[in-house]
Write a protein that binds this DNA or RNA. Sequence first.
DNA 1: AGTCTCCATAAATTTTAATTATTCAAATAA
DNA 2: TTATTTGAATAATTAAAATTTATGGAGACT
Lengths: 314, 314
Amino acid sequence: MPELPFTLDQLRILKAIAAQGSFKKAADLLYVTQPAVSLQIQNLEKQLEITIFDRGGRKALLTEAGRLLLEYCERILNQCDEACKAIEDLNSLKGGTLVIGASQTTGTYLMPRMIGLFRQKYPEVSVQLQVHSTRRTGWSVANGQIDLAIIGGQLPSDLENLLQVIPYATDELALVLPTKHQLSNKKELLKEDLYKLNFVTLDSQSTTRKVVDKLLQDSGLDIQRLKIEMELNSLEAIKNAVQSGLGASFLPVVSIERELAAGTIHKAFVADLEVKRELKLITNPSRYTSRASEVFKKNILPQFASLESPLRHV
Amino acid sequence: MPELPFTLDQLRILKAIAAQGSFKKAADLLYVTQPAVSLQIQNLEKQLEITIFDRGGRKALLTEAGRLLLEYCERILNQCDEACKAIEDLNSLKGGTLVIGASQTTGTYLMPRMIGLFRQKYPEVSVQLQVHSTRRTGWSVANGQIDLAIIGGQLPSDLENLLQVIPYATDELALVLPTKHQLSNKKELLKEDLYKLNFVTLDSQSTTRKVVDKLLQDSGLDIQRLKIEMELNSLEAIKNAVQSGLGASFLPVVSIERELAAGTIHKAFVADLEVKRELKLITNPSRYTSRASEVFKKNILPQFASLESPLRHV
DNA sequence: AGTCTCCATAAATTTTAATTATTCAAATAA
DNA sequence: TTATTTGAATAATTAAAATTTATGGAGACT
């Protein structure tokens, strides 16, 4: 590592003198005294072993070496200015990247709207959405690859302690039936009715599937008795299956808003059964929080949060 | 003039940490203590209002803002290195420009050889030769447009005081005749013989012409009685005229070396007549002397100087 | 738990840069 | 010419900044 034979301040002074043609005027321009300017130039000349200015005549004129140095000087100072501007933009959210993690469900149905709102407010910040499993998303937040994430499942306990987990909204997992299913007419189903249904579910590795299983079990159902027609790994596929009359399913309400409105799918109510899960915001408190991430958390998320969410009161 | 929010040293430290992934290692690399590094980065972060490093984990990792800054950092430091190299080259004569002034004669017949020698030793220094009148050359040296010059005539007296004038060589102005001229056979001419000749001369504005006239006059000749066949403004033209038998002329010996060797022109000796002029080196003592100029004066010129020249003993 | 490594912090020191006051030199004006 | 002005160099002092030594704390590895 070579030592630097000059400082940015010296270059700034050099430029000022060259522009003004005078040490004194340069000093005035830079709000310092004339000796300060003289000494810095002397230092510079000593360090580089060159003469920079001809002080003979009325004006301070550049020597050949001075002109050479000035050329670089301008380039260097321009780069510095540019760097400052870029940093400022980043600070004022006119640049930069926000990396958001999400599970399949939120990533597909919720995040696009949120990101849309964010981009509307801060169009210069590019947003990257990474859809992964809850586990992988958790690790990505832990090691900083993701700024913040929304998850619907349970984090491994080691990660749970490492990360900041804030409940942010409640996501209902609604029982949906084909519209033409005979049970679709009943106003309210009984838990027993569930055993009569054929289910189309997510595959058993999925966090959402695990959550549903656990909630059903907790409410006293014997999930072994539930008939599973097929396991698919995509909510869209399941939705299509349900619409085609292949069976019933517990699906996040956010994922079926359109279908409910269109009446192509039926949402059933089951007495004494609420299948709800917490959507949680996770961030890494031990890592740097980018401005974009901060703003997203403070301004965007609350608009999508349920009323009882802590984020409402931030 | 905006204040600079960072210093080159800070950028250097930033780069080192980014490369080493550790504050401590960067400190070792830069031969400073670890707190020095920490504090500088803290200053930098405070100034720019950004976080640059995530200090959480095993390694110091760049944040987004840090990566952005690092990019500019590298560019800036590269420019700095380049500037240093350019200055070094200039100092060690591996670059730069040397501007030399000369009169018609020396510029045509002498300087090319000198410049050739110089370029052989310092091929990276580009040399510019400006051939002008003595007067104009003098002014150019005075205002720094020319680093050094060789002149054969007399400077205006105001310039003479301003500039440093060092006699450097003696230039003989030889009487040359066509080889077939009848007087070419005589071993030695008399001054009287000159009146029998037809002369081909430089035009009367030329410094060399003035010098010749004055020297002839000083040696007792009546220059009005000399017959001038024609006046030309180029030595080459005069040489051709002489070789074609159109007349005689006083020409600098340096300009006719080739013709004398080839025997296409005859150099006559005149009893009691020496037409010699001093070639003088002029420089501007009140101006910066470039390294190239210094070297040219010290190392190149003496090799072409007559024995009695002061330059011989520098 | 214990040790090690790495970074942050505090206080003291050193180094560097700036200021005031003055001198010097050249240019302008009387 | 001499006086006056202007711009730059120099010296001494003061102010500011960076560096060091010494120390504390937090996470990683054994």
